[in-house]
Every structure is written in C-alpha cells, then in structure tokens.
Design a protein around this nucleic acid. Sequence first.
DNA 1: TATCGAATAT
DNA 2: CATATTCGAT
Length: 734
Amino acid sequence: MALTQAAEVAGKFPEGLRVLAVDDSPVCLMLLKALLRRCKYQPTMTRDAAMALRMLRERPEDFDLVISDVHMLDMDGFKLLELIGLEMDLPVIMQSANGELETMMKGVTHGACDYLVKPVSLKDIQNIWQHVWRKRKPDIRNHNGGDNDGADQVCATRTKRKYSRKKRSDGYNYGENKENMDSTQKKQRVVWTAELHRDFVIAVNELGVDNAVPRKILRMMKVEYMTRENIASHLQKYRLYLKRISTQTGMDPDQFPEKWKYMNELDALKNYHENGRYRLSPAIASSNSSNPFARMNSASALATHGLLPTQSVQLKNSQRNMAMGTVGHGGSPRNNPVFQPLQNSSNARKCFPSGSSGSSFANISNGLVLDTDDSGSSYADMFCKSLWETSNGSPSCHSGNSSANKSDNGVSAPANQFPVQSNCGFSVPANQFPVQSNCGFSAPANQFPVQSNCGFSASAANQYQVQSNGGFLAPSNQFQLQSNGGFSLPANQFPVQYPEVNNQPLGIQMNPSSANHFSTIDNAYQFPDLADCSKYWQTTVPTMFPDLGHEDGTSFGPSQANIANINQLSSFAVSSGQAPMFGDELHGQMSPIMSTISVSDFNEQMGSFNIGNHISSTEMMHDNNFTLGSDSNISSTIPSDSSFDSTFPNFQLDSSPMLNGGDADDILLPVLTDTVDQQDLFDQLDENNGFITGTYGSEGTGTLELDDIVAELFNHDFMEGDGAVVDGDQEFIP
DNA sequence: TATCGAATAT
DNA sequence: CATATTCGAT
C-alpha cells in the first residue's frame, strides 16, 4: 500500500489506487481499463484468473483492490474470490452481466465487498476506493481524519446492494470490514465432548473454582486447538451452571458435601480410572430430602449429571429397531445395549448425541458409550449404527404436526398434536391429549391420560392420570398414580399404589435384621441416605435401566423377569421435594434409555393397568380411546388380551375411594374394585415374595386385600423405622 | 419462537 | 479476565 499511502499523505487519495482487473473478455477489460484510468487509478489488467492469482501471490503488496468478472474460462470468479479471501486481505469487487440477485448474493456472501453489474459506469468505478479505505487500518484512517460518512452515503445510494448489516453506533461498519472473510475462515466451533468437559472439570477442580481462570485451565488441559477464548466461554457457562445448582440447592458449590464427590459423571469417570469402579454419587441415590438430587432412580438426577442423553433419540426408522428387535420372551439381556463408562470398552463406539435446543449445560457431557461386539447384529451395534447412520452422529427427531403420530421407534412429538403412541420411548410436549407408550417416555404438563407399559417420567405438574407398568417418577400435584414397578413420588400426591415387592434386583440383597441400614430414615417416606457409596452404590442404579455400575459390562435389562417385578426396593422412594430439573433435562431423557429394553420382554408378560378412567386396559389398548391400536405394527407388539390377561389380572382401580393406610395419615391408597382378581395378584406376590405372607402371617388366608398388604407394609416397617421392609436372610453386598 | 452453546465484543 | 452481547443453530 505504499503508493496509496503516499497518495493519502499527499492528500490525493484515491489517486493511484492500484487495481487488478480480471476479465476474460477483452472488450470489457479495455472498457474497465479506460474507466480506471479516468479515475486516475493505476490499473493492471489480465484476462487470466490464474495469472491474476499468481501476480497476487507473488506481490500482494502491489495491489490495493481486485475487480474480477464472475464468468471466466479458466477459473470461476467465485473461486478466485475465495482464494483471495483466504490468502490475502484484499478487497474484491465482483462484476458480471448477470444482475440476478442470487448471483450477486453469492458474490457478496462469498466475501466480495461489492458487486457491479455490467455495463459498469464511471460512477461505479469512482466509488471503488471506499472499499480500500474501509480496509485501511484504523490508525491510518484516524490519522487522516477518517470521515467515512461520505463513503457510506455513496454506498447507500448503490441500489445493487441488497443486504445490509447492522451498523455500529459509531458509524463504522465492522461487518463491511470483514466482508471478504470467507465462511471457511470463521473459527471452527469447539465441541465440548464428554472427555473435553471432563478434563475441563478436572482442571477447574484442581485449580480451585476461584483460581480457575481460562489461561490456567488451558495450560492444564493441553488441548492443542483450544484457545483461551474457547475456555473462557466454556468457563462462563460452567459457572452459570454451578450457580444454577447452588441456587436450587441453596448451597455454595464449594461447600458441596463430600458425598457428592461423584455427583457427576465426570467425577465418576475419573474415579473409574483411579479406582476401577464406576460409581455414582450416593447423592444421586439418596432420598434424603436435604439432598437436591434426592430421588433414587431419578432420571432427572441422572440426567442432571449427564448420565443420560436428554434428547429423544430417533432410532433408525425400521420396523424392527433395537428396542423392538427380535429378542422375544426370555431373550438374553446381554443382547441389550450396555451403557459403559467412557473409554472403558475397547470396542466401544462412542455416541455423542448433540444437545438439543433447550438442553442445558449439564447435557454437554451426555457422551454415551455403547458396548458392542462388532458383530453388527447386537442391539448395541444396531443402536450405534442407527445413531450414526441416520443422524450423522447427532441424532434428533422431530415429527411434525400430524394429527396422529405413531412410531415404533423412539420419537419426540412436538406440541399441538393429538394422539401419540410409541412402542418405544418418546417424549411428548405440552398440550397433547392421549399418550401411550409401550416403552418409557416422558410427558410434560397439561396432558390428560398417560399410560406406559414401561417406565416413564411425568415431568411436570397438572397431569390427570398417570399409570405405568414399569417404574416411573412423578412430580407433584398429580391426581392418580399407579405403578406396577418401582417409582418415586414427591409430595402432594393423592393415591399411590405400589402393588408388589418381590424379586430382588440383581446384586442387591437386603438384610432386615440390620436395622442400621435404615437408621437414617428420616420419615416413613424416605429411604436411608446411602452415605457410603462404596457399600451401596450398586443399588443406586435402577435395575430396569441399563446398569452403569457393573464392570463386566453386562446389562440388566429384563429377560425372564417380569419387568414389573424388577424394580422394587431400590426404586420406591417418596421424597418431600422435587428433584431439580434443570431446563428441559428431564424431558425425553428416558427415551433412549428405555429403548434399551426389549419391549417384547415385558409386554408379553404384563397386563395393562388402568386407573380411574373406567376404561379397561384392553379397551385402552384397542378401542382407540387412547391408542391408535388398529395399526398392525402396534398389535404386533401389544399382547393380545388373553396373553396378558392370563399372565396378569386386568386391574381396574376406582378413582374415587381412597384408603387411609393406617398410621400413615397422609398416605392414601386406592381401593381395588371388584373387577380385580385380587387373588391372582396375591398369588403372584406370594409366589415371588415370601415376606408378605411369611412376615405378616397372612399366608393361606387368600383373602388379604391389597390395601391391607400395603398398609401393613407402611405401618410396620416404614412408619416405625424399626425394621426393613424386605424379608431376610439377605444382606447388602458391599 | 425461545433458548441453547460458542464466539465475539466490551 | 469477567461480563455482555451476538451469532448460528434447533
């Protein structure tokens, strides 16, 4: 720029502006040359784009500006534009006979600072100097009293410019200044994977929260491509996240108790490397009401700590997805996907569902590793493959606005839809009517009936009916709740039924004679605070979910077991407060988890329970009250009436009568109506669970009613806190 | 459309 | 460096 700077100093700018003009049309080139000369610029002409590029590369300092035609034989003008933009900081003006908006926009968006339509006028050429002026360093501009109002005015009169950027208040437009910056020059966005975030957290923890500043963290993380700015940005979000937790818990993040040591998956992973065990914080498992992550089996707690992907995952849209796959009754649970600690499995494929919109910071590290056997046919394989293949690693699903929405795969249904049904996990937003799932799902507010044959979480208040034949968790202010599997309930709920306590979850045994195991029970509704996670951590993972705690990588999806029987003690917790739900975390996070369970494993064995709506389960299933059950795909996965009726009695619970469960004044239990075959239930409970009959001497009566059983359960054990609820010759396994 | 995470500006 | 704002995405 020596010449133009000299010209400036002499007060003659833009005289002598050195312009490289590229056009393969000799006529146009001569015209352009003439015009440039008239303006007292210093033109260099070439008909060859490649030659122009060579000249620019050899002596970039010899030119102030480039004017290039769009259509050239040897090189696309846009290509030249792009290369110049990449390699040097020169303003480029594109020109062509094509006045099409699209072409012009392409020029501008690819970094051209202006676009001239032929024939080019003298006035056009007279004005090109401003682009050089804009490129000039601020100090030079200021030195010259830089008043660019005139330039902007001229520019504003240029009708060809079809877009504008927001102008800065000081009148200088940085956007213009960067116009020749190609999109390829934009900074690569850093994706904070689970590993990165883990390293970040480790660094922050070692430095101490107060001491952790971006540069130090950067130094500790040793990630080459990362910049201080990247760290700073992440740190900012991280601090917001900590703040959010602390406001919800009322605690200073620095003062988080030691027992929360493993409260997030990152710490758990770290611990895994150090101690060979993947342990979750007992804080996640504990039902202590002072613990904000209180709820045992709380999906929200797990999700809060990034253990579950929180967006719905659209599985491959095949008729036989991994959840609905070919494993039928009694299929091996080992064929189910296994959620493994990151980096643990040598043949693991890592899946990192990207956070959906609305996901919170805690979801950054939703890295999800599925152990696979690489056979390509295991569920884990299929799951991973479908994740990657259908979504290029960022699975998301949006089904849109149909009046009926059904999926045999996981699906998330957006708002304002009517019926929703899924044979796999899905999540449903607000304002929907009937919802049914044969696998887990989560349902937010303002829904009417909700039913699931597997676990789900009802994430928000104000639902009418909620029923699950698998575990679920429910927030406050719900009317009716029923589960045939474990579930956790917060305060202010009306009827609660939990009809069975039977099979011991794998790896968990309870010893009722060890009163101290329950010594920390605060009240009747809470489980002991399992403060020593080394002793109890295995119980913290609900067995109906993939088991995160087992090092051998086996999962504990249901196989032979009736899923209703799987979750029991470890999954029944009634807490007085809501577990924190950060943002939309709860929403939908069950879906991918539930999809790891073979639906056929349980729906063949389970009846559909129904409460309060006076519609039988079979009606619920088949008469369109709730489902879109006429579809053949559904009927193939919903057992016929006889198959589940014979396996499980068809319950109907009356919505109105409630039973006061004895001393527990505020526990209300629904009364079974006459339509219920109580003996069947009792037999089943009896068979699976000797303690009820054995402990309470009701064996052989055959007439003990369910409410009595449950009342006994509450009155004697939970209420008094002087014994365990499970019979026993069994002990906790440390 | 509101809201997120990351980039960028102040 | 901390904080605020913008950007690009969903």
